[in-house]
Amino acid sequence: MILAAPAVILLLVFAYGPMAGLVVAFQDFNVADGVFASPWAGLENFRFFFTSGDATRIMRNTLLLNVLFLSATLAVGVMLALMLNEIRGKVTKRFFQSVIFVPYFVSPIVVSIFLQAFLAGPGGRGGLINDAAGLFGIPSVTWYTEPGPWPWILTLVKVWQLGGYMSVIFLAAITAIPEEVYEAGEIDGASRAQMAWRITTPLLKPTAAILLVLGVGRIFYGDFATIYAIVGDNGTLFPTTDVIDTYVFRALRTRGDFGVTAAIGLVQSVVGFVLVVIATMVQRRYAKETSIL
C-alpha cells in the first residue's frame, strides 16, 4: 500500500487541490476579488452556453467527432497491430513499428501546416490534392470553405496521428498472449488470418474495453489542440468542427471570464462521469473480467 503513497500525494496536490477552484463556475468572477472572494452568480455562467443557440450543434459535433475519432483509431490500431504481428524479421518489424509511430511526435501545429499544403497551396489556391485531382480533370475544391468533409478529414488526421500509437498498445497486448493459446489453432490447421481473427482479436477485447471506457469519460471533451490548430477561427468550418473546447476558448478570449470556462468544464466533467458510470456498469454486467474500476 505504501507503494501508492507517492502517487496519491501527487494526485492530491496537483489534481485534487485545484478542484477547489471549481467554485468559480458559480461565481461572477472578477480579477480583483480572485477565486475565492468573487460574488456568487448561481447558474448564470451556465446560462451563457446553453442559451447561445449554438449549444446543441456544438454538443453534437463534440460527440460525433469523438465517436469517429475513438472508433477509427481503435479499429485502425487493432488492424495495424494484427498486421505488424505478421511481419517477421525483427529488424523489419521494428522498422515499420518506428515508421508508423512517427506521426505521434508531430505537433498539431505542424499537422495543420501539412494539411494546408495538401488541401490548399500557397495563397490558398491549389494544394497537392487539388493538383492531383486536376490531372484527372476533377475540378478543384476549396476545402477550407466546405464544412461537409471536415469530420472525415479530421478523423483521417487522428488516425494518422494515433494509428501507430494505438497499434503499439495492442501489439504489446498481442505479445503478452501466451503461445499455447495458438497451439490448438495450429493443430487444427487454421490459417494465419483465421488465427488473427478468431484467437487474437477476441483476446484484445480487454485492452479495447479499457481504452473505450477511458475514452467514453472524455467524450464531451473536444480535441482542442488538433482542432484549433487546424480550423482556428475559420468560421465557415464551424458547422461541423466547432466543439465545446474551441467554443470555450473563443468565449474566454472575447469575454475574459474564467467563470464561464469553469462552468462549461464542469458540465463536461459531469457528463463524462455519468457516462463512465454507465459504461462501467454495462462492462461489469457483460464483461466483468475487463472492468478496471
Partner: peptide
Amino acid sequence: LPRVSRPLAVFAYIPMLFNGGLVPMYIL
C-alpha cells in the same frame, strides 16, 4: 485488495474527468 484497490482506482480515474481549471492550478 479489498476496500483499497477499487477506491484507489476511482481516485486515480477522477482527475481524468474533473480538473480545477487554469486559474486554481496557476495559483497553486
